[in-house]
Design a protein around this nucleic acid. Sequence first.
RNA 1: GCCCCCAUCGUCUAGCGGCCCAGGACGUGGCCCUCUCAAGGCCAAAACACGAGUUCGAAACUCGUUGGGGGCACCA
Length: 493
Amino acid sequence: MPQPARVRFAPSPTGFLHIGGARTALYNFLLARQTGGQFLLRIEDTDQKRLVPGALENLLASLRWLGLQWDEGPELGGPNAPYLQSQRKEIYRAHADELIARGSAYPCFCTPARLTELRTRQQQRKEPPRYDGLCRRLTPAEAEARRLAGEPHVVRFKMPHEGATSAVDVLRGEITVQNKDLDDSILLKTDGWALYHLAAMVDDHLMEITHVIRSSEWLPSLPLHAMIHRAFGWDEPLWCHLSVFLKPSGKGKMSKREGAELMKEGHSVFVHDLRELGYTPEGVVNWIALMGASFDERQDVFSLQELVERFSLDHLTPAPAAVNFSKADHFNGVHLRRLAPEELARRMRPFFEKAGLAAEEDLLGRIAPLVQERMVTLEDGVEMAGFFFREQVIPAGSDLVGKGMTPQASADAVHAASEILARHPDLADPALEVELRALAERLGLKPGQLFGILRAAVTGQTVSPPLFGSMAIIGRAKVLARLAAAESTLRAM
RNA sequence: GCCCCCAUCGUCUAGCGGCCCAGGACGUGGCCCUCUCAAGGCCAAAACACGAGUUCGAAACUCGUUGGGGGCACCA
């Protein structure tokens, strides 16, 4: 049994949960569950200016919808509370002071204007943009005096000028960077708020995080983060940087810009959109789990529990992965088909209601087996089975005419079929199909011709669930009424 | 511009020196099943980026090239 892992998902509430974040959360969750450890949720909201209203609520709701319940975090608390960084300001400030005292950080009094100018000059000279170390050269006494005088300042990390720094990423091995290529990053802003580099490292240590599983966007700052841990004298967590998601074309990072375009084709990168489009948590989880990973040589359909059992960091790939939405459809269809009919009915109901159809759950439960293997999303159920819940259907006249037939012959066929149906008190009687097939033969029609007409008449659609199962559910009275209506439409043509 | 990372079918991947003239899945094409549409079954096309090494042997190891991605904020 491996050591219990304490991991965390630490989003910033600057937007809604997207599939990239969801996958990061998933992997953290899986490792925690598999090892009997804890999955923490920490909100990185130190930049108050960037907060987006509703983002936090969306994050929590989306995570829960996916089934990724955290063990410690917002709304739950825990031994390391608070889990909102905005409530931990003093902790970071104290740690920044400690770093200064240890000689690993220093106050910097440079104004934003000076820094902007510095950067502009460096770019003109094609030099890498880097702090020039002006305040680093201040004597401790001088710096302390200016600090006590209340002069506005930030706190910077004192990056060594010589040597190199190495850190190990679980998926990539040792990564080494020359220290001269690193900057004296700001840890604490003028307003006293910590930046990610400080806040996240301090919290990860205080919360006893064992594995930092995060987006590979953080890879370039891994040396800095490792050095911050070392400067405090702390043990480092295991670092694991996940590949980024690319656009379906494979060109460029998946962005929110793409979102609007995708929505038009019934896809989205946002978890709440996926939910509204009729995707299931099972489908989404399966889909994102396998983007950039493989957990079994022969199997690719997994429940959350199966993923918990098979998950392993060694099965993750470091290369960027292009998002493939047709695969989302596939996995969603598979998981839809795995649902018990009653469960499928329960999940479809809100979509019928949204479409203005009062769908009772027990009736939906009888319909479910008929539509289950034809659905990609829950939304599809409405299009496929809406006719069950409408008083009447209005088929297009052209759909009522049998293939290669005249309206007259079609009307006659409907009439003859009605007579047969009228003799059956129970439309679920298997003999019904036998009789109607015999009718088709008598009329010189192929079964498909006759059934096509009846399908249009009864469902109002050219594509529908199986005809006989559908008629049995609709009931004899309604079926006969719809056939009568169809016949008169045909007679009038 | 500088730094870092990555590189097997269109896409996600298996492969951790001989089991590979490379396996699976999605998608695509064909056939079967069939009352429509699906689902399901069978079959097919489809890849080791390139060049040098190392080795008896390289998809696997090393270096280079090319290509792709990420980062270089008082954002995260």
